[in-house]
Design a protein around this nucleic acid. Structure first.
Lengths: 174, 174
DNA sequence: TATTGTTATACTCTATAACTATA
DNA sequence: TATAGTTATAGAGTATAACAATA
């Protein structure tokens, strides 16, 4: 990471990216040194950046995740897709409805288990996903330009380790 | 960061921390290598960890941020508090109502500008905040135990740089 | 005119319970 | 009996518009 990027980030503590106008002179106290605070701030900023970059396509991060997983796992069940993304299976129904209504994926019926739906991308879904991946790569590139690609990869690994460390302890069934 | 923590994080890719039961055999494709994905996963896991650790006190991350900033900036205006935390000034009203109803802070009226409210912690607010800080330190310690404190600090700096890199470009007023 | 706090409203995300059809 | 999909609903969080009091 460049010293410039670090110092810019440091100086910007009191100037949040939120819609309310930035303020000066507010002492953030211990917050800027906490993972809990910086994690939230970075996520909000990144997702706003995502929203700006994908506004014309009307695609949200979760929808990109859904399309990516259906491509990587053709025929995946709704409940497995939901579990892999950390979404309740009840909440993924309208999300799939929306993508299906736009002709991006289909609920196929060819399955041994007639309770489940096999999800597959349509050609339109594959075409859109290719463009989505280009734009996502541009976002990642923006991060890489700020901190360097080596630190970008390091950041990804640290974040995965944080997720693992924060995982809820299993109920431990006897 | 220890190799053990890294490899645990890697192996856990298909076992998300979300409430839906973890699944095996789902290919996450390129997602685990993206800042956008790991950032979201880490944030969700961290905040669930926060919720577990603070459930008995009925305190959420935003409320901890509010109390921390009021302590660091006694007499701060509602709108400045909102801006510093990236909250709309309309949305912070019921949040302050809640903390005031619990006797943790007060809307003082001693101000030159009679439109604004000067926020201050009550003794009860200061007492609770001390306990909140102890618990937050424990959460940070959990992260530090997983990746080492040097990498924890490095992570904080990387996240601040990511926030800065993703900041919305100013409208550039001529 | 502009700002502060406020109300109202709407939209998204998330969580839970319960139903149906299948297994 | 258990599971997959679905519906309904409730709770947060977030965004915008508009208003009264004050500057």
């Amino acid at each position: 990471m460049s010293e410039r990027a670090l110092s810019a980030a440091r100086d910007a503590r009191a100037a949040p990216s939120g819609e309310p106008a930035p303020r000066q002179g507010v002492d953030l106290g211990p917050l800027p040194d906490l993972v809990g605070y910086t994690l939230r701030r970075a996520q909000i900023a990144f997702f706003r950046s995502f929203a700006r970059g994908f506004a014309d396509l009307d695609i949200r991060p979760t929808q990109l995740g859904m399309l990516t997983l259906v491509e990587a796992n053709p025929g995946i069940k709704q409940s497995d897709l939901a579990a892999a993304l950390g979404i309740q299976r009840a909440n993924i129904v309208p999300l799939i409805d929306g993508l299906a209504a736009r002709g991006l994926l289909v609920r196929a019926k060819a399955s041994a288990d007639r309770r489940s739906h096999a999800l597959r991308l349509t050609p339109a879904g594959r075409t859109l996903l290719a463009e989505l991946k280009r734009r996502e790569a541009a976002l990642e590139g923006r991060v890489a330009a700020a901190i360097g690609n080596a630190d970008r990869r390091r950041l990804v690994k640290l974040l995965a380790a944080v997720e693992e460390a924060c995982r809820e302890p299993e109920p431990d069934p006897d």
